Every structure is written in structure tokens, then in C-alpha cells.
Simulated scan of single mutants.
Amino acid sequence: MNHSRHEAFLRNVWYTNERTKHFQFQMSNGHRFEFRPGQFISLDIELDGRKIRRPYSIASAPRADNGFDLCLNMLPEGRVSSWLFNLKPGDKIAFSGPFGFFSLREPPDPVSAFIATGTGIAPIRAMLQHLYSRPHSSEVWLIFGVRTENDILYRQEFERMAEQYPDFHFVPTLSRPSPGWTGHTGYVQRHVVRYLAGKKGLHAYICGLRKMIDDVAHEFRAMGYDRKALSYEKYD
């Protein structure tokens, strides 16, 4: 794949909650951008005369329109996230990529388990879009941990998938649930053990902060899974 510099313009953007935005970009001048679901780009910007580079996971599968999505939080002291949040449709970005080896195995395993927290859902969403763009025979689990109900990014999209595909199991879990929440609670580690113990032919894709990934990997090893059954992307 070509890791050279590219240019794209912002086609659309919206808030997914009060501190997270979803960005839809389109390649400029009809240039092709080829990537594998799960990979990331390196955004190149200049602020106050200083060149800054930041990695961001692509939040969509490859599309016929040659576009791609990003999903990111506004960080309190984040100069780059502030710059991105101020972009308007038509504004351009420069980036290089794609990079990374966190991608869907081909052919998919008999059981494909996706575990994410926060914006770690971005590359997982890309993989799921790709997985369900063609026939497959996998049993698929998505265990998604966030703090509050408002933090369940792409909730309606995943709920529709669960209704449409009997083999897709969506398990959102909240660490700070409201009194009215009737779904799963606690950290993803608990539900990894509850739903995935004893699954044969499993491969797990894990994305989020280092501590969560280390804890989930520990649970998988305790259940007897080989480390080769795990793929992960750490965000810190």
C-alpha cells in the first residue's frame, strides 16, 4: 500500500455526543486511497509554525466513493483535536498512510469477537462494516464498554445490525450507569468471560487504552486462549 502523503476534504461532520465528533472525508482530485479496515492514518498539521503529526484510526471500511471516516474526542488540552473540531465542510487535511497491522483476518474465524472502549470503537466499526459487506459464516460479538449511555457511539447502527443479523451479538456495558439503565454494567473484562469462555475457533480484536487491553488479554489467557488468538491496538 502507498504510504505517501494524501489530501482530503471534509464532506460532512456531526456530534455523536457532547465531546465526540464523526468526520466524513473525501479524497481530493479523485485520488485513490486504499487501506485495510482497522488501519490508521497520520494527520499532518502546522500550528504556530510547528509541524505536528497525530495518528487516527479510520472509522469506516473502504467505500466505492473513495471516502473515509474518523471519530475522535475533544481533549481539554488537545491542540490538534481543537483544530479538527473547528473544521468546516470543504476544509482540507493532509495526511499519510495507511499504517498498522490491526486488521480483520481473512477468511474470518468461526468466532470473531470485538472488544472496545471509548473511541477504540473506530477501527472496530471499520472491520464490522467490511465483515458484513459480504457473506460470511462467523459468529460475531461486539462488547463495547463506555461510562454512560450517552457514550455508546454508533449505538443505533449496532442495534440495527443485531436486529438484521442473527449471528451478530451487541453487548454495550456501562461503568457509570444511570438509575434507569437496564442493560449490562461494569467493565468489558467481566463480559468477555461471561460470553466468550469456551468458544472454539475464536479470534479477538481489542482496541482501547493499555490497561483495558492488558486486563482483557489476561482474561483470555486465563480461559486458555493462546496469545495468537488476540489482535489489539493500544491508544496510549
Rank of each mutant, 00 (worst) to 15 (best):
Leu84Pro: 12
Leu84Ile: 04
Phe85Cys: 11
Asn86Pro: 03
Asn86Trp: 02
Pro89Met: 10
Pro89Gly: 11
Lys92Cys: 14
Ile93Ala: 11
Ile93Met: 07
Phe95Asp: 09
Ser96Pro: 00
Ser96Met: 08
Ser96Tyr: 02
Gly97Met: 05
Gly97Pro: 04
Phe99Met: 10
Gly100Gln: 10
Phe101Gln: 13
Ser103Asn: 11
Leu104Lys: 05
Leu104Val: 01
Glu106Ile: 00
Glu106Asn: 06
Glu106Leu: 12
Glu106Ser: 10
Pro107Thr: 04
Asp109Ser: 14
Val111Asp: 09
Ile115Ala: 07
Ile115Trp: 01
Gly118Ala: 12
Thr119Arg: 11
Thr119Glu: 14
Ile121Thr: 06
Ile124His: 07
Arg125Phe: 08
Leu128Trp: 01
Leu128His: 08
Gln129Trp: 07
Leu131Lys: 05
Leu131Glu: 12
Leu131Cys: 09
Leu131Met: 14
Leu131Asp: 02
Tyr132Asn: 08
Ser133Phe: 01
Arg134Thr: 10
Arg134Asn: 12
Arg134Ile: 00
His136Ala: 01
Ser137Thr: 09
Ser137Pro: 00
Ser138Phe: 06
Trp141Cys: 06
Trp141Gln: 03
Trp141Thr: 02
Ile143Tyr: 00
Phe144Gly: 02
Phe144Gln: 05
Gly145Tyr: 01
Val146Asp: 09
Arg147Ile: 03
Ile152Arg: 06
Ile152Lys: 04
Leu153Met: 09
Leu153Tyr: 15
Tyr154His: 15
Tyr154Ala: 12
Arg155Cys: 15
Gln156Lys: 15
Phe158Trp: 07
Phe158Leu: 12
Arg160Gly: 13
Arg160Glu: 15
Met161Trp: 13
Met161Tyr: 08
Glu163Ser: 13
Glu163Cys: 12
Glu163Lys: 15
Gln164Gly: 04
Tyr165Asp: 13
Asp167Lys: 00
Phe168Ile: 06
His169Phe: 09
Phe170Trp: 04
Phe170Thr: 01
Val171Pro: 02
Pro172Ile: 02
Thr173Asn: 08
Thr173Met: 11
Leu174Met: 11
Ser175Met: 10
Arg176Val: 01
Arg176Glu: 14
Pro177Glu: 10
Pro177Asp: 06
Gly180His: 03
Trp181Ala: 11
Thr182Trp: 00
Thr182Leu: 15
Thr185Pro: 01
Tyr187Trp: 11
Val188Asn: 05
Arg190Met: 06
Arg190Trp: 02
Val192His: 02
Val192Phe: 04
Arg194Ser: 12
Arg194Ala: 13
Tyr195Gln: 05
Gly198Cys: 07
Lys199Ile: 03
Lys200Arg: 14
Gly201His: 05
Gly201Phe: 07
Leu202Gln: 03
Leu202Arg: 02
Tyr205Ile: 02
Cys207Ala: 15
Gly208Phe: 01
Gly208Ser: 03
Leu209Ile: 00
Leu209His: 08
Met212Arg: 03
Ile213Phe: 07
Asp215Asn: 13
Val216Asp: 09
Ala217Lys: 10
His218Phe: 08
Glu219Ser: 15
Phe220Arg: 08
Arg221Asp: 13
Ala222Cys: 06
Ala222Glu: 13
Met223Ala: 12
Met223Leu: 15
Gly224Phe: 05
Tyr225Arg: 09
Tyr225Val: 05
Asp226Glu: 12
Arg227Tyr: 05
Arg227Asn: 07
Arg227Cys: 10
Arg227Pro: 01
Ala229Gln: 11
Ala229Arg: 07
